[in-house]
């Protein structure tokens, strides 16, 4: 018994090593200067300590464009994430708790939409947006991010399973209106799913690359993903004006994964349960 667990633990350690190697490398590399990075010394071990210099360079390079990108990423992720969560929660509840004509057909459409690859929509959306004069604005990134058919699906499944009709009816008998019933009775019960959907959509927006890459040409509007992509392109054509950009890219990558890692760690008791929702039905 314990023997088997030792095997299992070793297996887990090996897995952890594999999944941590790139992150560990990132952590180590962000403490090196350009010389240390390219000297050919051990890539996975420290060589000098320049993290503070790197951070200072990172936040001041090109008038602090990194901070701007960070701010943009936060803006897009929060507005897109919160917006799509609100929409999904409302719709999921509507689908789960109301009987109305056309409900099944509409929900079938939602399920169909889950299967439509959203990137296939980027190019026509770009042309539409440009006709409306919206490309190269924050709206071009935020508005399409509001669409989350999977969020609706998740919320519906969870609501059906965890919000009893009797409870809603009891609230109605007490004279609560529909919205009050939703807010006071249903919403608290839906909380794990709400947080899960919120995290999923924030992550999706935060990590998005294709959409902002196509929609934005003004680098002042870039989110981190596109900005760091631009830096790495400049760096690989040695165009930092004599300055090696690589340590900035690496430090910038490290800084940019901290907020999400932090969010996942602090909110783990919610999402770990919520993620299973979609699969339980």
């Amino acid at each position: 018994m314990s023997n088997r667990h030792i095997g299992a633990k070793l297996f887990l350690l090996a897995l952890v090593c594999y999944f941590l190697v790139p992150v560990w490398w990132l952590l180590v590399a962000s403490t090196k200067n350009a010389e240390g990075l390219f000297s050919g010394s051990g890539a996975l071990w420290f060589n000098g300590f320049h993290l503070v210099d790197n951070l200072r360079d990172l936040f001041t390079f090109n008038n602090g464009e990194y901070l701007r990108w960070l701010g943009n990423s936060v803006l897009y992720a929060l507005t897109g994430g919160i917006g799509s969560t609100v929409i999904s929660v409302l719709a999921g509840y509507g689908f789960a708790k109301y009987r109305f004509r056309g409900r099944n057909l509409t929900f079938a459409l939602v399920l169909g939409a889950v299967m439509v690859p959203l990137t296939a929509l980027v190019i026509p959306t770009f042309v539409m947006m440009s006709n409306a004069g919206l490309t190269d604005t924050v709206w071009a990134v935020i508005l399409p991010s509001l669409l989350s058919p999977f969020g609706v699906y998740l919320m519906r499944v969870y609501t059906s399973a965890s919000v009893p009709d009797e409870l809603l009816d009891a609230a109605r008998i007490d004279g609560a209106g529909e919205l009050r019933t939703f807010l006071r009775v249903a919403l608290p019960l839906m909380r794990p799913a709400v947080i899960t959907v919120l995290l999923l959509s924030v992550v999706a927006t935060w990590n998005n690359y294709f959409l902002p890459l196509t929609m934005l040409s003004d680098s002042k509007l870039y989110p981190l993903t596109v900005g760091i992509g631009l830096w790495s392109q400049l760096a690989s054509s040695n165009n930092g004006g004599g300055q090696s950009l690589w340590s900035l890219i690496i430090t910038g990558s490290l800084v940019s994964i901290v907020p999400l890692v932090f969010a996942f760690l602090t909110l783990q008791k919610y999402w770990q349960g919520g993620l299973a929702v979609g699969s339980l039905k």
């Binding site: 770009f126 042309v127 947006m129 440009s130 004069g133 490309t135 190269d136 196509t214 040409s217 003004d218 680098s219 631009l230 392109q233 400049l234 054509s237 165009n239």
Partner: peptide, 23 residues
């Protein structure tokens, strides 16, 4: 603004031409 060296900048310019704004 440095919008990229060579091809990436051309792609951005091409995009702006198609969008009729952003160049």
């Amino acid at each position: 603004t440095n919008a990229g060296q060579g091809a990436p900048q051309y792609a951005k310019f091409q995009t702006a031409i198609s969008a009729k704004k952003g160049a």
